Amino acid sequence: SFNTVDEWLEAIKMGQYKESFANAGFTSFDVVSQMMMEDILRVGVTLAGHQKKILNSIQVMRAQMN
Rank of each mutant, 00 (worst) to 15 (best):
V5Y: 03
F29K: 04
E10L: 05
I58S: 02
G44A: 03
R42N: 13
K53W: 15
V45P: 01
Q59M: 14
L55H: 08
D30H: 13
D6W: 10
T46E: 08
L9Y: 02
I54H: 02
V32L: 05
A24F: 12
Y17C: 02
I40A: 02
G25S: 04
A63T: 12
M35P: 00
E19A: 14
E38I: 09
T46I: 14
V43Q: 01
S20N: 13
D39E: 05
D39Y: 03
L9K: 00
Y17Q: 01
D30K: 14
E7T: 07
Y17D: 01
N56C: 11
N3Q: 14
K52L: 13
Q16A: 09
L41A: 11
M35E: 01
K18Q: 07
T46N: 09
K53F: 14
R42Y: 12
E7D: 13
L55E: 05
F26D: 01
M61R: 03
M37D: 06
I58C: 04
Q59L: 13
I58K: 00
W8V: 00
L47E: 14
Y17W: 04
Q59D: 10
N56P: 01
M35F: 04
M61S: 02
F29W: 07
F29M: 10
S33A: 11
F29P: 04
T27Y: 06
S20L: 12
I40T: 03
D6C: 06
I58W: 01
V60M: 12
D39T: 03
L55W: 15
M36P: 03
K53Y: 14
S57Q: 11
Q34S: 10
M65H: 07
E38Y: 07
L9Q: 00
N56K: 13
M65C: 08
V43S: 05
V60N: 14
V31L: 15
V32T: 03
A63P: 06
S33C: 07
Q51M: 05
K18F: 04
R62M: 09
E19V: 11
E7K: 07
I54C: 02
M14F: 05
S20F: 07
M65V: 07
S1Y: 14
N56R: 13
M36V: 15
T27D: 09
R42I: 11
G15M: 05
I40G: 00
Q16L: 06
I12C: 05
S33W: 07
M37I: 11
K53V: 15
V43L: 14
G44T: 02
V31N: 09
S20P: 08
A48Q: 10
E7W: 04
E38H: 10
V45L: 02
L47W: 08
M14D: 01
R62F: 11
D6R: 05
M37T: 07
L9D: 02
M35Y: 00
D6G: 11
S1L: 13
F21P: 01
K13M: 14
N23T: 12
M61D: 03
D39H: 05
V45W: 02
F29N: 02
E19D: 12
G15L: 05
E38P: 12
H50I: 02
A48E: 14
A63L: 10
E19K: 10
A48L: 13
M36C: 09
I54A: 01
E10A: 07
S33Y: 09
V31I: 14
G25R: 04
G44V: 01
L55I: 09
Q16W: 05
N66K: 03
N23I: 11
V60E: 15
K18I: 10
M65E: 06
K13G: 14
A48P: 14
F26W: 08
S57Y: 12
W8Y: 02
F29C: 05
H50P: 03
S1W: 14
E38L: 06
M65K: 04
S1V: 13
I58Q: 01
T4D: 09
S28F: 04
L9E: 02
S57D: 09
F2G: 06
A11G: 14
A24M: 09
K52A: 14
F26L: 08
N56A: 14
K53T: 15
Y17A: 00
V5C: 03
V32W: 02
